[in-house]
Design a binder for these strands. Structure first.
Length: 496
RNA sequence: GGGGUGUUAGCUCAGUAGGCAGAGCAGCUGACUUUUAAUCAGCGGGUCACAGGUUCGAUCCCUGUACACCCCA
């Protein structure tokens, strides 16, 4: 019999004993204080003799035990932090003290007593009563090194959360970031909405969808790759400023910056253009830096990133030239030359791909990862922007921008294409690409065209990748570090 | 999809020119009324990821598979 099983068997035996004497999973303990609150409230309390004693009831997970004969110390951890318990045989009584000695690290307990300070000055509860509230049958990871194995941290995130303060703080930060964004949008008069996650036709982004099936209707549905088309239908309907924070699903590879489901905020504003959203994005990002980090200087994975002042801004072509001195402007604008260049750069180009598509490929491969400072890129080709408004001066480019930090695309926004006939033509173009084998190309969405034909006001739209933003703001190297339960390959469940 | 690295006790990690598998923590027994990685004495705990191959003998060498991490596409 392995020791792992031994430890579980011992705990099961203890639980069996508890079942005989009482209900082992009581739910009538009510705490009066949180550990972290006590620490901050009593940071300067002296607990001198004459003072009125402060009685508290605390509960949480037993994280350590130091048994010394007739007295013991222990730490419990709740949602706010840890506090030390001091247990004495003559205070608890023989029976209760012996019961405590049977508790295991990992058990959930409730304790009541008076606050005091130990010789070393640590705030401590002098326990008068303690109860086991939940027996833990499996041992926790080791107390000193904690849990470091990345696979276990992701698959059993609860253990990571119990053991690692850093993990807890990342997800607290994530919640604060999303709350901040939501309040920012509401304060700018945006209405929060929820649109379908299951789409009859996948649309709104160039991406491969997941397919599911509705039994009663006997029809295939697609998990959404973006909420874009529905949100713009709401603008047609007169909700002139809307936003949605929710999951998108893309059936693509996984990496440190891609999870099959990821969180995006999309938002639309009538009577605004992409330049307005560049300004709005900068304002939002700066305010997030201040609210999360308290500074516009952030360190990301050892690189200082400066969010102060106005963010950098280049045209896409200019950025290619700036970061790749070997490439000339003429090469990027000549069909023949750019294909040779792409070949030289080992970029695969499809036979139906035009100038714009190849420019985009070169940009993605040879510029994106170099955009470390917060940077807006504009001037994207219409060919790769099937939902964007055409630029008035240069019809081959769109009124679109993307926002990059630390070499990562964080946001994508544009003046919306509200010309229904142009949009129908762009969908036709996408269908041509799909027939040529491009699995990411869009479908023709007649419903959406119909909505546009009713009149979409001039509108700006944008999507912000929340996970990537959280990565940068929390200095996390992988998207798995900012998603509570990242997608993992199937694995055998933990054996007993 | 390609390349690299890894998988040894519940956890964190050693290790073996190829010859009975190691530590710390956790666990168990005992001592201990201000400890905090408590301490002291003793004890138990392993399909060395999985499947093949080479070998007298494989945790170690070879091949494949699974899972994970990193890099590239």
């Amino acid at each position: 019999m392995s020791e792992e099983v031994d430890q579980i068997v011992q705990r099961r035996n203890k639980l069996a004993m508890l079942r005989e004497s009482s209900s082992p999973f009581p739910n009538d303990f009510r705490r009066t204080a949180f550990a972290g609150d006590l620490q901050s409230q009593h940071a300067d309390t002296g607990f001198s003799e004459g003072q009125d004693p402060i009685r508290v009831k605390v509960s949480g997970r037993l994280m350590s035990r130091r048994l010394m004969g007739k007295a013991s110390f222990s730490h419990i951890q709740d949602a706010t932090g840890q506090v030390q318990l001091f247990l004495q045989k003559n205070q608890l009584g023989e029976a209760e003290y012996e019961q405590f000695r049977d508790y295991d690290v990992g058990d959930i307990v409730g304790a009541e007593g008076e606050l005091f300070r130990t010789r070393t000055g640590e705030l401590t509860v002098r326990v008068e009563q303690i109860r086991l509230l939940t027996k833990a049958l499996r041992p926790l990871p080791e107390k000193f090194h904690g849990l470091t194995d990345p696979e276990t941290r992701y698959r059993q995130r609860y253990l990571d959360l119990v053991m690692n303060e850093g993990t807890r703080s990342v997800f607290h930060a994530r919640a604060a970031i999303i709350q901040h964004i939501r309040e920012f949008m509401i304060s700018h008069r945006y209405l929060e909405v929820e649109t379908p996650m299951m789409h009859p036709i996948p649309g709104g982004a160039v991406a491969r969808p997941f397919i599911t099936h509705h039994n009663a209707l006997d029809m295939d549905l697609y998990l959404r790759v973006a909420p874009e088309l529905y949100l713009k239908k709401l603008v047609v309907g007169g909700f002139e400023r809307v936003f949605e924070i929710n999951r998108n699903f893309r059936n693509e590879g996984m990496s440190t910056r891609h999870n099959p489901e990821f969180t995006m905020m999309e938002f639309y504003c009538a009577y605004a253009d992409y330049n307005d959203f560049i300004d709005l994005t900068q304002e939002l990002v700066k305010s997030l830096c201040q609210s999360v980090a308290g500074s516009e200087q952030l360190a990301y994975q050892g690189t200082e990133i400066d969010f102060s002042g106005s963010f950098e801004r280049y045209g896409m072509i200019e950025s290619i030239l700036k970061f790749n001195p070997d490439i000339s402007r003429n090469m990027l604008h000549d069909e023949q030359a750019i294909r040779e260049l792409a070949d030289h750069l080992k970029i695969q180009v499809g036979p139906k791909d035009g100038l714009g598509k190849v420019q985009m490929e070169i940009f993605e491969k040879h510029v994106e990862h170099k955009l470390i400072k917060p940077t807006f890129i504009t001037g994207y080709p219409v060919e790769v922007s099937p939902l964007s408004r055409r630029n008035d001066e240069q019809p081959e480019i769109s009124d679109r921008f993307e926002f990059f930090v630390a070499g990562r695309e964080i946001a994508n926004g544009f003046s919306e294409l509200n010309d229904a006939e142009d949009q129908a033509g762009r969908f036709q173009d996408q269908m041509g690409k799909k027939e040529a084998g491009d699995q990411e190309a869009m479908h023709f969405d007649a419903d959406y065209i119909c909505a546009l034909e009713h009149g979409l006001p001039p509108t700006a739209g944008e999507g912000i990748g929340i996970d990537r933003l959280v990565m940068i703001l929390t200095d996390s190297p992988s998207i798995r570090d900012v998603v509570l339960f990242p997608h993992m390959r199937h694995q055998q469940p933990p054996a007993e």
